[in-house]
Design a protein around this nucleic acid. Structure first.
Lengths: 223, 223
DNA sequence: ACCTCAATATGAGATATCTCCTATTATTAT
DNA sequence: ATAATAATAGGAGATATCTCATATTGAGGT
């Protein structure tokens, strides 16, 4: 983890810095700095105290919940403009999560100790936070209700359509399995089935969508 | 649905009214009134505009998400001090949910049209709302990650322990099945299995816990 | 260049869970 | 009260999904 002075960062990323300035009170920005995390680095560990509120400025990360039985479940992907640690800020979180950088990540970091008071008295911030949390709640609920109401092939179709890029699906399959909540084995079964049904074609380790319509039908129907 | 003047209500429920007064700005309380819903009555319908922010003062309710395929999934039980419609207030909700009263419910109702501005500028309210949403997010996440990481008998054990009263489990089984995310048929299988394993005893339509330890072990382990 | 560890891949067998069907009680509405 | 609807109950068979075992391939570190 590398720390960078906020002003140094501001010189190179003017637009982002302007957004930040409009969103956070000055007193808080004075305490803030930039953190860079490398791919696969832990941003937060479930068994260590969290010291900062982070705002993800660049890169992708993932949140794991750690169960008592030692198993982990991937519960969310984070991207630009997602908060990390906001639940600790408002003191509702008892069990921290693991947060891991997927690719290199740039974060804006606010030291909780010195920023909490300011943030919790700032109307704009609270309003934004409420919207952010409400949105997160809805998205997470949708994700999970889908899991329980559709069988896996439907969910997988939906997931592929969400995440594909130029018709190409190249996510890490181990991660995908954790996120969509099935065993790796079953994920492979289903991908092979998609291949046999003429939905996907495999080249090397990438899958290409060759029948998007059919995939879309599958993603929103049962059966 | 029956409307009652807030002042009339306040005379009979002094303590609750005092809490309310400390939590909401006066300008907003002047617009508010009390709504009573009967058991099984719809408080919100997924296909109708929502006009009020409700705070549940008494009774229990349940939230359903309605899928495109027509299926419903029970996603949360609501009790005293839960909000209804708070996501519409902050304008993040696109797809409304069904909210249905389980028993008779008493709600404090704020007309969105006239209260929104006031509420969204009130620091105390926003802070409370953030905490409320954060807490809801965590609870919902826990509920769903449990669903995916434990098999049903573990989840059922946990659920029974959460909801039992004096060792007696008497929830409606159809509702339970929807909430815990299995078919009614499978719920019955598992309850019978619990009976055979000496965890529960059945009297009429009620189940009584006869081996709490074993149930607790089952609720937190795999297998 | 070599070693190690993580990711990809697939087979075989087990089982958790579902769907569909059919009775039998409760509960609610007319 | 009686009809109608919802909840409880269980049988039979299908299948979606899991676990475990094993082999191959790829990437990162020294």
């Amino acid at each position: 983890m590398e720390k960078i002075n906020l002003k140094d960062y501001a010189e190179n990323f003017v637009d982002i810095y302007n957004d930040i300035q409009e969103t956070f009170p000055k007193a808080v920005l004075n305490q803030a700095f930039i953190c860079k995390f490398s791919s696969n680095e832990y941003i937060v560990r479930f068994d260590e105290d969290i010291q900062y509120l982070f705002l993800l400025l660049d890169g992708r990360a993932k949140i794991y919940i750690v169960h008592e039985n030692g198993k982990r479940a991937l519960i969310q992907f984070l991207k630009k403009n997602d908060f990390i640690g906001e639940l600790s800020l408002i003191e509702v979180e008892k069990n921290l999560k693991d947060v891991v950088a997927i690719d290199d990540c740039t974060c804006l970091a606010f030291p909780l100790a010195s920023s909490k008071e300011h943030l919790l008295n700032d109307n704009l911030f609270l309003h934004n936070l409420s919207k952010y949390l409400g949105d997160k709640l809805l998205k997470r609920t949708d994700h999970y209700t889908d899991m329980q109401d559709y069988e896996f092939k439907n969910r997988l179709a939906k997931y592929i359509l969400q995440i594909e890029n130029d018709g190409c699906f190249q996510e890490k399959l181990t991660e995908t399995a954790e996120y969509v909540g099935v065993s790796y084995r079953h994920l492979l079964y289903t991908l092979n089935q998609f291949h046999e049904d003429g939905l996907l074609k495999k080249k090397g380790r990438k899958y290409f969508i060759i029948n998007k319509e059919k995939l879309e039908r599958l993603s929103s129907k049962k059966g």
